[in-house]
Design a protein around this nucleic acid. Structure first.
Lengths: 193, 193, 193, 193
DNA sequence: GATGAATGAGAGTTCATTCAT
DNA sequence: CATGAATGAACTCTCATTCAT
């Protein structure tokens, strides 16, 4: 009994540390970008020593990957697999894809940086997978590999416009977001013929 | 007249070196990206000492900027301002925008890297400007600021898909290129209503 | 209490290193002067890598400043604020100002170099302050700003002759030192009328 | 005849170049100090190429030395060897030593920098020599080596206070200059007993 | 003479990572 | 687990000087 309690405590502490470190990494990655971010800066932001950081993450990239995982989870939480996709205006589908993603990107400040960092393919892949599935449901007759291509392109477009959206606010942001949706709607309409 | 030749000779050597250095920079930027590229590596690739590099360029960014300038020039050379834009299928207009850009990107190996590097806004701006002008000719009634937005989005989409296009070849590349054109056509059609 | 010892240990190693680095810096600054001294040379003289140096000092100037602080401390230790300054021959006062300073300069080989280096104003200021206070005690009726001027001039004279004194030895040094004291006595006598 | 004219012209051009280069060196040395001054900067300031500079001066130090020579000459021009030194108030003698020197230092902007630069011992030596001779005339019974010592000390004091004098202006400068003269008068009075 | 390109060792500084404590 | 000292190669950039033209 004692043996089981102690490990739990340890694990709990460990996870707290990891979360703490990831939060710090999020700040630093968001502020400086992946390349310019410094493991020392992350450790400092987390209030621990560099050595401690390396007890939880083998290298800088793994922190980015872990952050990406976190974002994948958040996206999954928000994603409603039961959501109607067929017999619904395309605009609604796009809204349900784009809006939560933007909101998450805004709330999780390193989302944008992680979206492009090399060690975070997972994140892009996951988003792509979601889009792919949505398309699959809505346009089942589409060839899977073609569908994959379309999903990939869709995600790249999203990634390309996201920075401008996040950098803007108010009216400007609405405009940029509108433009993103316009592009996607036009493309997806064209493609689903 | 004779006097002008002598100075030219000296400048000639210098300009040869500059070209040589820019070529080397192109290689290194293409291989490593702007951030990871080192001035020493560029100098070495050019077969000169680091000091020589700095006789022609005050810093790393200026090499990127010069390279960007070069690409702007190449784009300008290829661009035919007399080309018919009105009363012509949109597909043709898009082909004439996209195909030369891709070809240039392929021939000038750092084009992609420069397209995103911070010291090279000029390049993106120049491409955006070209697109803007083309739209202006074709859809004159469009509000200029809205037009600018559309051009910007168009260029971002191009930039987002370019890496995949360049990374691919043969059938795959044709597919990616086709997809890029499809996106742009759908978007621009939608927008010019 | 036990807890405080452990952190101390870590700091102890660090402070040992800092002392070691400052000693090395002292050697190198003394030998080459502040400008010509290199951080790599200092690190090498301390037997550590350049990176280690920068864990304790953010830049070259800060090492000089730290050295200057050290000398300020040594001067403070030697300075007896209770020492009689009134009702005592001026020669004694001057001896008590000059002799310890020269001795410190001799024992701490970079004293002279630090005395003039820009990042070490503190050192000159501190010495000036001491002189100022001594004059204040001995000639209380003197206008403070005038007193400051006199102290400044006194210190500059000291700094100007110090190199010759340190460079000499034996009889020559005694002569130079005597000359310094003669100047100061004559000046301070003149001034306190 | 032709042969004698051409060399003259060449020499004339050469001396013009040297003067031009020295003027440039004066600016740069004055602005940056001897160490921080750059031969390239000097050449640029003179409007010539680095290679040209090295056709007239073998290295950076030699430019400083040449400048020092120039200042020695200027001092000599100003110096009146017939000036009465005996049977005249000491204040007058000091004025005639100090005032022209300060004026020269002000007019020739690198005087101060050259006064301390290592390749310019000549300048200090020359000034020292002048002072030595003046003392010799006024106090002939003084032991020559002691006289040399006094002259040296006098010059060092001058050099130590000169920067403060030049940096100041108006009332402040008058104060500093006054202080310099006070020191020297007190010292020389004491010494000539 | 004059040019300016060329040199190259070396400056100060950084940082992902390791390791003794 | 945590610490923070330690590493060291690598980075960007400089500059007195030389040399081909």
């Amino acid at each position: 009994m004692v043996e089981t309690v102690k490990p739990r405590r340890r694990q709990a502490r460990g996870e707290r540390r990891m979360a703490q470190l990831l939060n710090a990494a999020e700040e630093v990655f968001a502020a400086d970008g992946f390349n310019a971010a410094t493991t020392n800066a992350i450790a400092a932001a987390a209030g621990v020593s560099p050595g401690t950081l390396y007890q939880f993450f083998p290298n800088k990239g793994s922190m980015a990957a872990a952050l990406a995982d976190r974002y994948v989870d958040v996206l999954a939480e928000v994603h409603d697999p039961e959501a109607k996709v067929v017999g619904v205006p395309l605009d609604d589908v796009i809204n349900r894809m784009v809006d939560p993603a933007i909101e998450i990107a805004e709330q999780h400040r390193a989302f944008e940086a992680m979206f492009w960092a090399q060690p975070c393919d997972k994140l892009r892949d996951s988003v792509t997978e979601n889009v792919d599935r949505t398309i699959a449901t809505r346009v089942p007759e589409l060839d899977p590999s073609r569908r994959r291509l379309i999903a990939t392109v869709t995600v790249k477009i999203f990634g390309a416009l996201l920075p401008s959206i996040l950098a803007a606010s108010g009216r400007e942001r609405a405009e940029m977001t509108g433009e993103l949706k316009r592009v996607l709607r036009a493309y997806l309409l064209d493609v689903s013929d």
